[in-house]
């Protein structure tokens, strides 16, 4: 009886897995097709005559700079966001003060702003401080707009940290910075990895802010590579597919890495605990 249950479970899991892996395979086939095959052909079908030149087109378009910009902007914004968010979450959940609820409230309001409401005021602000067409504006914006969600995700975890851990550290004479950096941050590694993944995906795929705040080619990011293939009346979807494949690869690698970190963190904290 039990055995049949497991078999059914695995069958179900396998079906879902096929469904989840399909988009990547589909995207790869998409990147090797012509517009004609993409729109009028069967989406399951293999490309009749694989168009590797779609990839050539992408590289000819010169995505090297975009690639590098995407990487450093994503990394810097992610690191700053998680650091600032962790500190704020720590102060809100673990420290005793009157206004913690209010501060959390303000941060949560940040979740609620629709991007297009913010776009024009933000542009104007950056213009006034001369940050338009400067990658700093992008880094700051990504950092800020990811803070609320990062804090919210960390929140659920921070509230479950046993008091005893802190008490032990403080009574041992450790400073609060030491407590935060040496004890709290390491044991929150699994949840931090989770927020790293989420931040990374958001920063990597973002294009509304980049397109608005940046005008020089040398500061643009990979999502601009996609814009390159959208024309006034005609769009080269095969080349867009190739750009999407190229740009999803680093994020898959990073995801696999941090995904394992979720496990490692657990083991580490289990040893300590």
């Amino acid at each position: 009886m039990r055995r049949i249950g497991y078999i059914l479970l695995y069958v179900a899991l396998a079906i879902v897995a096929v469904f989840q892996i399909f988009p990547i395979i589909w995207l790869f086939m998409f990147s090797l097709k012509t517009n004609q095959e993409i729109f009028a052909g069967n989406p399951f079908a293999l490309p009749t005559d694989p168009k590797w030149e779609n990839y050539a087109k992408v590289f000819e378009g010169g995505i090297g700079t975009y690639f590098w910009n995407s990487i450093w902007i994503t990394v810097v914004a992610t690191v700053i966001t998680i650091l600032i968010a962790s500190m704020a979450t720590f102060a809100i959940t673990r420290m005793k003060w009157k206004f913690s609820g209010l501060v959390l409230g303000i941060i949560m309001v940040g979740l609620m702003i629709p991007i297009h409401s913010a776009l024009i005021p933000l542009y104007n602000m950056f213009l006034n401080v001369n940050l338009i067409d400067n990658p700093l504006s992008i880094v700051i914006t990504y950092t800020t707009y990811n803070l609320p969600i990062t804090v919210m995700i960390l929140l659920g975890f921070y509230t479950t940290i046993p008091r005893e851990i802190e008490e032990a550290a403080i009574i041992d004479g450790s400073s609060i910075h030491r407590l935060f950096f040496r004890i709290i941050l390491p044991i929150s590694a699994p949840i931090m990895s989770t927020t790293v993944i989420i931040n990374m995906i958001y920063n990597w795929n973002e294009f509304v802010f980049v397109n608005t705040f940046i005008s020089s080619d040398k500061f643009k990011t990979l999502t601009v590579g996609i814009q390159n293939f959208i024309g006034q009346y005609m769009t080269d979807w095969g080349a867009i597919g190739a750009t999407l494949v190229i740009s999803v690869l680093p994020i898959i690698l990073a995801f696999l890495f941090f995904s394992d970190k979720i496990m490692e963190g657990i083991t580490a904290s289990a040893v300590k605990g």
Binding site: I84, M87, A88, I106, P121, M125, T141, T144, Y145, L147
Partner: peptide, 12 residues
């Protein structure tokens, strides 16, 4: 966190 959110989210 508060400064960033105040300037870039609350003001807009």
């Amino acid at each position: 966190a508060l400064l960033l959110i105040a300037v870039l989210i609350v003001i807009p």
